[in-house]
């Protein structure tokens, strides 16, 4: 890859001025975000340095098993994050893990089998990150939507159960709405691609000197891939998680936060 962009350490250090601007705003406006900002920036720098060296190492070794392990590690981290957003839904980690594994595996397999991507670490790892990251966001939204709806519609769910409805029948509308909530942001952002923002992957390729016409092909692939990934993970998480709001006696049980 020819490096048309190569940020020197010196110019990067100067770009730290941008952080200072945000710190000044926080200080002047008494937002009390200074400490948090500094911690986030330091964390980001440290994490990225580690990941940078790790990726360089993995790319050099170019071993399929190591690539696979790295992909699973990404999914594991995403699943842990998904659990955090579940507000106490029992078994949320396991649901997130299987949901993300399923959506990532299906999506990546199709991309590899159709020849769009090669099973090479420098392609597999970043794309797995995108797929798992977007699935994670979708799963988080699904959990939040389920929690919110079960609280708001407690009475309606109760009435359905009282009439003999199974949890599946009693929560049908809630589940559908949760799936929609999980997928909606992807559909919305895809709609404005190219009009409002040049999406991440395309921007990266263009900055790296790739012909924009070539770059859009990758971006179109990303659209397909994100729709599939958020769709699969939202459906899986909704169908697995709604059951956790009921006990085996078909009684509504809201998770304790």
């Amino acid at each position: 890859m020819n490096s048309q962009i190569n940020v020197s350490n010196w110019s990067l250090a100067l770009a730290f001025i941008l952080v200072v601007i945000s710190l000044v705003i926080s200080y002047r406006q008494k937002l009390k975000l200074e400490k948090e900002t500094i911690i986030s920036v330091v964390r980001a720098i440290v994490q990225l340095i580690i990941v940078g060296y790790l990726l360089k190492f993995i790319f050099n070794v170019d071993n399929w098993l190591l690539t696979l392990i790295m992909q699973l590690f990404i999914i594991y981290n995403a699943a842990r994050n998904g659990k955090k957003r579940s507000q106490g839904i029992p078994g949320a980690f396991v649901i997130s893990w299987w949901g993300l594994l399923l959506s990532t595996t299906i999506t990546m397999s199709i991309l590899v089998l159709t020849g769009v991507l090669k099973f090479e670490p420098y392609q597999m790892i970043p794309v797995t990150g995108m797929v798992a990251g977007n699935s994670m966001t979708a799963v988080g939204l699904v959990y939040r939507s389920l929690n919110q709806q079960f609280r708001d519609q407690q009475g309606q769910v109760f009435e359905r159960l009282a009439l003999g409805a199974s949890p599946k029948l009693a929560a049908g509308e809630i589940v559908r709405e949760a799936i929609r909530t999980g997928m909606q942001p992807t559909i919305d952002s895809v709609r404005t691609y190219g009009l409002v923002s040049l999406p991440g992957m395309m921007s990266g390729l263009i900055m790296a000197g790739v012909d924009p016409i070539h770059a859009i092909k990758y971006q179109i692939m990303v659209v397909f891939m994100l729709l599939s990934a958020t769709g699969i993970s939202s459906v899986f998480a909704s169908f697995m998680a709604y059951r956790k709001f009921f006990n085996e006696r078909w009684q509504l049980q809201l998770p304790k936060k």
């Binding site: 519609q153 309606q156 159960l161 003999g164 509308e173 006696r249 078909w250």
Partner: peptide, 20 residues
């Protein structure tokens, strides 16, 4: 089986919540 049971033993409450 709880579903069959609730079809036979039916509970109605004050200020019924309608759904859908």
């Amino acid at each position: 089986p709880i579903g069959d049971y609730r079809q036979q033993v039916s509970y109605a409450t004050q200020s019924a919540q309608l759904f859908g």
